Structures are given as structure tokens and as C-alpha cells.
Computed example of a mutant assay.
Amino acid sequence: MNSGPETLPPGRASAERILTILSCFERGDEALSLAEITRRTELVKSTVLRLSVALLDSGFLVRDIHGDYRLGPEIARLNLIYTEAMRMEHYIIPVLQSLVEHTGETASIYIRHGSYRLCQYRVNSPHQLGVHKQPGDVRPMDEASSAIILRNFGDNGEHKVAIKLPLFTEGASDPYAASMSIPVFQGGGAMLGALVLAGPCNRLNAERAEQYSDLMLSSALSLSRQLGGEAAFLRALQAPA
């Protein structure tokens, strides 16, 4: 039987209540009233009031002119430390390298960049004949698989139309090139971009793409899980409501 906050040692109980207050803030919240924090945490109002004093003193919360609570500058400082420590390439590059090792084709991550798509990370194919580009290359939002994925999927796995994932296209940007793509998500459900496998049409054809389908699915799931976006990725696999 799990112990609730009331049965825990005093120090741990207070720590868990403090974490409950901080974690009740959700994406999109600018400020929360005392009543709303009490409702979300299901803590006693006097407990929230007492613990909020410590959070205000330490900079984890601030109060605005209306008396409502906002996340404070200490949260931003810790987030910066976390972001710097968790450099995405430490997670992304090994996944891309694994795809290249298993398929011999070029693996990359494309993100939406205004009205274009931008190659953010890439591991090139070892073959002399292949699709070789560099991070920072910009491509049009045409009918290539990565462009379709970036247009169709948004945060939290939301999508406009049902697409069989991974999506395979050939001859869209280059008559001799083919690609297959699948969305990847990160913490908070935000869409990171499209995980792409690309190669020449004579090697990466529809039959070969079908053989790589499970590999692409498992790679995108693994990466999304490592970045904190597993739930959003799983929603992306479902048909839109």
C-alpha cells in the first residue's frame, strides 16, 4: 500500500506538497489564483498558503499585481541548466546513426522553418551514391514526405488527416530521390520535427520502405520517449477525431 502525504515523514510530506504545487502549473498557464492552485492540488488552502511563502522567498513563485501566482525566475534558471545539460543531439545523433547502420541510407531530422523545412540534424549514408546534405540546408515545403509530415502534424500529436506512418514518397524534390518520414515529439508534447530516411529511388523503393517501416516506427518512438514526447507520438499514430 502506497503512503499518502499525510503518512509520510514531515520533511518528505512537505517536499511532496511543494512539488505538487509547482507541477500543477500547465502549459499555457500565465498565472493561477490561490483558489485554482488549491483545486488542482487538492491540498488544504492554509497548506498552499504556507508553502507558497517558501516558494516565493526562494524565487520559485512570484505574485503579480492581482495577487495571483506565476512561476518565478528560479524555474527559468533551472530550466536553462537542464536544457544545456540535455543537449538534444546526445539523443538524436545515436538514433540517426543506428538508422544509417541498419539501412545504409541517410537519416535526418527536419523542422518547420517558416515556409520552408530545414535540416537540423543529419547522418549521411556511407554510399557514394546517396542523398548527401548538411545540417542547415533549407528545402521547400513541397510534396516530399518530410514536408507533408511537418504540414500535417502539430503539438500533442494533433493532425489534420490520417496518414499511414511512416510516410513514403519518391521523386518529390528530386526525380531520383525517395524518402520516408515520421513525426517525433519532445517534452510537453511539442513536435520536434520529422525523422527522415532518404536515398536514391533505385535503392529506397516502396518495397524497401515497407521493410524499414517497423525500424522507423521503433526509432521515432524511442527518440520521442527519450525526449519526453512518447504520449504525443502515440496519439499521432491514431486517426484524427
Results as ranks from 00 to 15, higher is better:
E42D: 10
Y82R: 14
M141N: 07
L237D: 03
I37L: 14
L99K: 02
S173K: 12
C119S: 05
E74G: 07
I18S: 08
K164Y: 13
F153P: 02
L237E: 04
A144I: 08
N202R: 12
S98A: 11
V95D: 00
K133Q: 13
N2P: 05
A76P: 05
L78S: 02
A190L: 14
S33N: 08
Y91M: 07
L165A: 00
I163S: 01
N2G: 09
S98N: 14
S218F: 14
T83L: 11
R70C: 01
N152Y: 06
Y212V: 04
K133E: 12
L165K: 08
S179I: 01
A31I: 07
R40V: 05
H102L: 14
I92S: 00
M86L: 14
P166N: 05
C119G: 01
Y121W: 14
H159I: 11
P183I: 02
Q238A: 09
R63E: 09
G188Y: 07
V161I: 10
N202F: 13
A54P: 11
P94G: 08
G187T: 13
P9A: 01
P200H: 04
K164R: 12
S145F: 03
S46H: 06
R225D: 12
F153N: 01
G193F: 01
R139L: 12
G157M: 02
V44R: 15
E26G: 07
K133D: 12
I75H: 08
C201S: 15
L96S: 01
S222C: 05
K164C: 15
N2E: 11
L197I: 07
E26N: 10
R40T: 02
R40G: 01
Q211R: 11
N202L: 14
P175I: 01
S108R: 10
R122N: 15
L195K: 04
M216H: 05
A107Q: 02
H90F: 12
A236L: 05
A15Y: 11
M216F: 04
Q186N: 09
F60K: 11
S222G: 15
E101S: 09
V184T: 03
G193C: 02
G154M: 07
A162I: 15
S145M: 01
G11M: 15
K160H: 12
N202K: 15
N152G: 05
A209K: 01
K45M: 13
I109E: 01
R87L: 06
L217W: 10
K133W: 10
A236G: 14
N2C: 06
R225V: 00
L167D: 02
Q211I: 13
